[in-house]
Amino acid sequence: MARAVFWTLPIWSGHETAAMRMMSVMRTAGRLARRPVVWVGAVFLALTFGMDGLAPHLGFLFPAGTRLVYTRASFPELVASHALLTGAASLIAIAMGVAAALFATRPAGRAYAATLDRLGALAQTFPPVAVLALAVPSLGYGALPTAFALVLYGVLPVMGAGMAGLSSVPAAVLEAADGSGFSPAGRLWRIEMPLAAPILLAGVRTSVTIGIGTATIGSTVGALTLGSPIIDGLSGDNPAFVLQGTVLVALFAVTVDLAIGEAQRALPQRPN
């Protein structure tokens, strides 16, 4: 952060010319290019859109006669479906997790904090595949049981992190806020949430990572995700599909993880 200020200040305070603006843009671009999220994301996007063109040339890696191009869906479609499923489920999970954490840290719900904690720990011992499979008889095959498992597993890290974050706000800060006349809602929104944000965001990061992984397994119950080529490749003895699916889903997960990591860095650091 400090370095950014150092580089940009002289330019914006001095007499501005087109060349200077150009240099600043280039410097920003150079700084961006050094962040892993940019190049991992670039490789991910290039492979997503280039896989269909690249796949026919990968024959030398696999036994002769292996089908190389995955035809059930195109890779951009798979990525979009995977992202939509994970994104929608994560939004629901984050909303539910934050709501539960808020409830458990307010005076009315504080008695239930330990219970929620305990339920979360209990639910986390259930294997994701088992929960996915158990959801099938009642929800059918496809995206629905996957979304159910995604929300269930996504809530827990957000709830845990939200509770940890909100209860880590020092009592002195809360008293100071009350003393300066904040309403309970105002105190929550302008004092507690910003202070809890770094821990909460770490929980969101875990939750989304777990979500991407669970969505991948969701293709065993018929959801269309990047896990589909892996599962089809494993059951059809086609290493080419397995490789394409694995590489893309791994890059996808790492890109999203790094992107949330960037958001964490962008938050103001809490003095300790």
Binding site: G213, I230, I231, L234, V242, A253
Partner: peptide, 21 residues
């Protein structure tokens, strides 16, 4: 190690097939 943990579990299982073969 965190990157390893980020990779979806199904992918990690399948990822080892190619190199080991």
């Amino acid at each position: 190690l965190n990157i390893v943990q980020t990779i979806p579990s199904l992918a990690l299982f399948a990822l080892l097939i190619g190199p080991l073969t």
